[in-house]
Write a protein that binds this DNA or RNA. Structure first.
Lengths: 142, 142
DNA sequence: GCGAAATGGTTGATAATGTCAACCATGTTT
DNA sequence: AAACATGGTTGACATTATCAACCATTTCGC
């Protein structure tokens, strides 16, 4: 199994999408990167949320997540408050300006999604999503 | 559209696979990275091949590809010879030790592929591949 | 209840990936 | 023949990513 292959296609698609997001962020004149946006989306979509939750979700080193969160907090896109259940931890939420950015990104994302999925049915997209999740789960179960 | 979403699943899958490859390379005690392997597979799978061909295929900056190739040549996994049709360019091929590595990676890849695709039919995998290519093409057409 | 072990998060260091700009030699176009 | 474009290289820098060590806190075992 080699390029061009299923994996090759997957990596090329992921790379294209990452560049798209990067260009969108540049056009918005934001001092963040695609991974920052990704983290905000995770936090925006679930409450309560801790750094460790993001670590688990992204399957990334906690050092990386800590740094991503730090930048977002510095730019007033995220905020943290003490976790009443664990003094070591803080609860993360999106600020008002962060929520505004999430809304702007949602509009852009919808456009990108429409472009990307042209000529593909809802069934095909569902299958793609399901198969991707199945594959990731298979790999995680090793 | 947000995490967890189709894109979220895609990025998580890509990340899992990259880590897999990284661990495999570490276990083989090789001084290269997943992108090096990816480049070798591209070159191994098509002849003749130039740096520019790899640039086009991967959709990456030529600076990055030049550096990846340099490392592989330094480690005698790839070799270059003058392109008879263009003095600016060189033709790239996999060396004997590079070919041996490609064979070892093929075995490992087959195992990973089997793990990853467990519970999925050939039709589903074909659909996944086709949809991924369609999406990448849609994005490239902007 | 106390000590050991584990956990949540931070920081330093380093690796991998990635792009931009400037440059040189060569090829193509006008 | 000059201008423009291209293939490849290098410097600089950005983004993504992990490992190790550390501190404060929580959990576990006795």
């Amino acid at each position: 199994m080699s390029d061009p292959s299923l994996l090759g296609s997957l990596f090329r698609l992921a790379h294209s999408l990452k560049r798209q997001t990067h260009q969108q962020i540049e056009q918005m004149d934001l001092a963040i990167a695609p991974m920052h946006v990704r983290v905000m989306k995770i936090i925006d979509g679930s409450a309560p949320c801790t750094a460790n939750d993001v670590v688990q979700f992204l399957n990334r080193d906690k050092a990386q997540v800590t740094r991503l969160l730090k930048t977002l907090i510095e730019q007033d896109l995220l905020q943290r408050e003490p976790n009443p259940n664990d003094k070591r931890s803080q609860l993360l939420t999106v600020t008002e300006s962060g929520a505004a950015l999430m809304q702007r990104m949602a509009v852009v994302d919808a456009t990108t999604y429409q472009t990307m999925t042209k000529g593909l049915s809802a069934d095909e997209l569902d299958a793609f999503h399901r198969i991707a999740d199945q594959m990731a789960q298979n790999l995680a179960e090793r």
